[in-house]
Design a protein around this nucleic acid. Structure first.
Lengths: 237, 237
DNA sequence: CGATATTTGTACGTATGTATT
DNA sequence: TAATACATACGTACAAATATC
């Protein structure tokens, strides 16, 4: 419950200390946090710092702040699983796998829709950018790590090519989940899979260039379903 | 550029004053904002207040804060169209219609996917909650406003029944857009449409209860496409 | 290149307001 | 009514990043 190493801002450290206790269950559901001044004494920081930390906890849904009444610990049902700081902590404590299936569902939904819209709306510039990426994917000199980067960029470009600003906004909200997931399971890009994957990307690009939305969606669906298998998706329900 | 009526927190008023100037173009792209202390003098508030306002502006993507270098106005391409406070301002200035088509695309994607997942995973409790809502929709004593409320609740319950926490998180992020949209275009629920709509909801519920994901998705697709027509969707591209 | 000034970032302590108990 | 606890705002000090001379 005390601050660990002096690494960053004070309120970040307070946040992490309290968040850890909540995530691990050391601070149980509906427990009332000590009042600001008490926490200030414990961590030996000003009340300003405590308030910023608590604000971050509330923003992540970890606590519920009630004016005049106190601050209470929320159950995991209230957590905001898109909150970057919370995701980081869940990633660090290795308790993030429970989100894999959820993420795959949403990713499929996202990518397929974006592929369809991109086929309908992609501009010449969008297509040119996609072509550059696919060209580099085909290059045998591209390393495995680079390939993963290109893969991410390709899909990001497709979302952009959908020219739907809410879609891109939501995609941006998902960046935290995606990145934590990536770190949790470092993807193995073996040679065979890479060849198949590159062919898929090429087909996707062709479909978009030709404006064939149905085909783009079908190819994307096959593509992400392939990725799901490679992530050894655990069976549902 | 000065503070209007004393209604809320000081930093909210500063935020609104600056945001208005950015949205209307009075503060042009790449313009450098006055330094904190100058803004403090102009608005006659402390630097604390200015900093909180600028933090909110940065969080909405309206400005780019560079440590030691100054704070610069962003173009609309950088705005975060999911930011609640920004959306409110766009709604108030009546410049929100450009998002209608984007929202409809995303809504279709969302609802269809959620319907499919719900059909696969809905628990007895989920279905019971949906039944209550549909029953009240069928009740002829339900008023038009109540019907709209029930409609929203029905779709919210379906997302919950998908038991996908990322999906529900993203849906939550969309609440701001949805609500601003609703206010911008007050939906007319005429009698004829209401009968069709209720039948759709009943079919959806049946599909979910029977676990028929494909049918649930098809019905939902037809349903939201009907809603799109009623919103007089403007042609694309 | 280095020294200095500018500007944002973080933190403190205090005072007062407001909602709840 | 009073006590408690969170909310907002002020002014100050110093640190860190950047710009300028």
């Amino acid at each position: 419950m005390t601050l660990s190493t002096q690494k960053r801002r004070l309120h970040d450290m307070v946040f992490e200390a309290l968040a850890t206790d909540i995530i691990t269950g050391a601070l149980a559901l509906d427990t009332r946090l000590p009042i600001d001044s008490a926490l200030g004494n414990r961590f030996e920081v000003s009340r300003t710092v405590i308030r910023e930390a608590i604000q971050a906890l509330a923003s992540a849904g970890l606590v519920d702040v009630r004016h005049g009444a106190g601050t209470y610990v929320n159950g995991s049902a209230s957590w905001d699983l898109l909150d970057t700081r919370l995701l980081e902590m869940l990633g660090n404590t290795g308790t993030i796998d429970f989100l894999i299936n959820d993420l795959l569902d949403v990713r499929r939904m996202f990518e397929v829709e974006a592929a369809g819209l991109a086929a309908e709306r992609a501009t010449a510039a969008d297509i040119a950018a996609l072509e550059v990426v696919v060209e580099r994917m085909r290059d045998p000199k591209t390393t495995g790590d680079e390939y993963l980067e290109l893969n991410l960029e390709f899909h990001s470009l497709i979302v952009q090519a959908s020219h739907n600003r809410i879609l891109t906004g939501l995609r941006h909200q998902m960046r935290g989940v995606l990145s934590v997931m990536m770190n949790a399971r470092q993807r193995q890009a073996d040679e065979e899979m890479r060849i198949v994957s590159t062919a898929m990307h090429q087909m996707l690009l062709d479909s978009i260039r030709e404006g064939r939305a149905d085909r783009a969606q079908a190819v994307m669906l096959a593509h992400v379903q392939g990725a799901e298998r490679s992530l050894q998706r655990t069976p549902e329900s």
